[in-house]
């Protein structure tokens, strides 16, 4: 195991008001690997992934202790700007959430808000991102139509392309296929496998087959605790914890 650690959670506790949502989480995400986080709904997996790019800060009355290290530096350190963290750690959400703008503007948005003005560069980047997200062929002739006209699966790939354009190093997927049909889901999974060459990927899913298909490592969460973490193959074939076994064999959740 000489893989480089990209993100590391150290003794993370998280509270919503008085609810103890995450309890002493210690977890590593390796570079250029796909890590799946599984668990029944309400287990804290979505809460956890949103800490990794500081999206939790949008919700008031929460409290965090412990550290989350990105390339060894704590992203919650007072000197670190959340905006900088989010540029490096992108996120794809449960429901496709394109902006009510054109396809082109959706992709270029991340560049323009970060001060890129060079038109040619933006054009190239949009094309490159759409190609990487396997959407270019379908939309290249209608880049200036509204993104809202795309199908759900296309919209989700657009959201992935949008994240790729800002050149983040890590992409967080929060149940990216929850609202998609099986064919669109297959396309997204294929894409994730392709993307891991260049990116560190974390995917939250309640679909165990999906976790088995796309991930290298799997973490199992239950009631705010990390129950087990290991190579996906091992987790699914020889779980060490009874609760993990009960969950993946479908006895609850």
């Amino acid at each position: 195991m000489d893989k480089r650690t990209k993100i590391k959670a150290e003794n993370v506790d998280f509270f919503y008001g008085k609810t103890h949502a995450l309890k002493n989480i210690n977890l590593k995400f390796y570079e250029n690997q796909v890590t799946a986080i599984i668990g029944p709904s309400g287990c804290g997996k979505s809460t956890f992934i949103r800490l990794l790019n500081r999206m939790n800060e949008l919700v008031p009355h929460t409290n965090l202790t412990g550290k989350i290290l990105l390339d060894g530096a704590d992203i919650f350190d007072a000197s670190v700007d959340a905006v900088e963290v989010r540029k490096r750690v992108g996120m794809v959400f449960q429901k496709p959430n394109p902006f009510p703008k054109s396809i082109f503007d959706n992709i270029s948005y991340g560049l323009t808000v970060n001060g890129v003005k060079d038109k040619n560069f933006i054009d190239d980047k949009v094309e490159e991102s759409l190609k990487k997200a396997a959407l270019w062929q379908e939309v290249k002739d209608r880049l200036h139509e509204s993104a809202l006209k795309l199908s759900g699966g296309q919209q989700q790939r657009l959201c992935i392309a949008r994240t790729l354009a800002v050149e983040s190093e890590t992409i967080l997927f929060d149940e990216p296929c929850a609202s998609l049909d099986p064919i669109s889901t297959a396309k997204i999974e294929e894409l994730i496998l392709e993307l891991k060459k260049d990116y560190t990927i974390v995917i939250v899913t309640h679909n165990m087959q999906q976790a088995a298909r796309v991930s290298d490592y799997t973490a199992f969460f239950l009631m705010g605790e990390l129950i087990e973490f290991g190579k996906t193959q091992e987790i699914f074939t020889a779980p060490k914890d009874d609760k993990t076994e009960a969950y993946i064999t479908g006895r609850f959740g």
């Binding site: 790019n53 999206m55 949008l58 905006v83 900088e84 989010r86 540029k87 992108g90 996120m91 959400f93 429901k95 959430n97 394109p98 902006f99 009510p100 703008k101 948005y109 991340g110 808000v113 970060n114 959201c159 949008r162 994240t163 800002v166």
Partner: peptide, 23 residues
Amino acid sequence: SIREASLSLGATKWKTIKNIVLP
């Protein structure tokens, strides 16, 4: 959700408001 999308792309709060929320 589209506010979150904008923030997750590294847009600041004000840029999110100006470019996404207000339009």
